[in-house]
């Protein structure tokens, strides 16, 4: 098992030493990242039967991923919803159909901004923490120690996090949606050039929205959250070198996660239409 995880970087190093191959290095690194992520995923999936025994760890990760992330998600969603209402109200003020602000905010939050914002905050707050924790464990050879004790890190460190993010993302997303909707309703009522009653704001939302729109957002959030945690675990576990590499890994993990969220967003949205 130890040989499996340490082999690929060595191989890569041997490949990349030759000069002509320097040009394709970033490309290779992307492929390498995708490959190692998939390997980590498969390995974690192999240990799913051990999940009930790791219930304590699962709960701990749920707490970190869900419970402690909620306040920032709520605050951000509130203002996202508010600003959406404000901007669409500003745009609609000259056209007329102001009652559709409710629908616009509702759909935008449920289908797009709710899941994306939840995932972005997850990457910033949880993804960075995961990458930092696993990178330091790797740098200080705790991972090696685990492997020596025949405890695969995919089982003990990755699987509970992946399970926890799957359980928590829908909760975070629905709260993000609702808080965003209410934020929009408040702004729509108290902004002088919009001033729509919440009843009419929510009526258009109810009339033209379906639970399918919300479900669409929840599915997207699950995919984003899962991808963010997997990528951050992978980058953390693949950190090599000294303590300085920990910081570099965190940066890489967050940047990769953000790019991944937006790229996935397009394809998942298209696939779910």
């Amino acid at each position: 098992m130890a040989a499996e995880t340490s082999n690929p970087p060595e191989e890569n190093e041997s490949i990349l030493t030759s000069a002509p191959r320097q040009a394709v290095r970033p490309f290779l690194r992307v492929l390498e990242g995708i490959g190692s992520c998939l390997r980590l995923l498969l390995e974690a999936a192999r240990h799913i039967p051990t999940l009930p025994r790791q219930f304590g760890r699962f709960i701990e990760q749920c707490y970190l991923i869900g419970y402690t992330t909620l306040p920032i998600v709520a605050i951000l969603s509130f203002f996202i919803g508010s600003v959406l209402a404000l901007q669409s109200g500003y745009a609609a003020a000259n056209i007329g159909p102001k009652q559709f602000i409710g629908l616009l905010v509702g759909l935008s939050m449920a289908r797009e901004l709710g899941p994306v914002m939840a995932a972005v905050l997850l990457a910033g707050r949880v993804g960075s923490a995961i990458a930092a924790e696993l990178a330091s464990m790797k740098v200080y050879q705790e991972i090696d120690a685990l492997e020596t004790m025949n405890i695969p890190p995919a089982r003990m460190l990755v699987l509970p996090r992946l399970a926890a993010v799957l359980a928590m993302m829908p909760v975070l997303t629905i709260m993000s949606d609702l808080v965003g909707w209410f934020g929009g309703a408040i702004v729509a009522k108290y902004t002088h050039f919009i001033s729509i009653e919440p009843a009419s704001y929510f009526a258009t939302m109810r009339q033209y929205m379906d639970f399918g729109d919300v479900l669409n957002g929840l599915v997207k959030a699950e995919i984003f959250g899962f991808a963010v945690v997997l990528v951050c675990c992978n980058i953390g576990l693949n950190t090599r070198g000294g303590p300085r590499e920990i910081g570099a890994s965190v940066t890489r993990a967050v940047v990769t996660s953000l790019i991944l969220i937006l790229v996935l967003d397009y394809f998942v949205t298209k696939a779910l239409m």
Binding site: C62, G66, Y67, L70, A167, M168, P170, V171, L172, I174, M175, D177, L178, M205, R206, M209, D210, F211, G212, D213, V214, L218
Partner: peptide, 18 residues
């Protein structure tokens, strides 16, 4: 509690919209 609350909210949204 957090999880149950989330599920309850999803259910409420589902009932309201669909």
């Amino acid at each position: 509690l957090f999880f149950l609350l989330g599920m309850a909210l999803i259910w409420v949204t589902f009932e309201t919209l669909s």
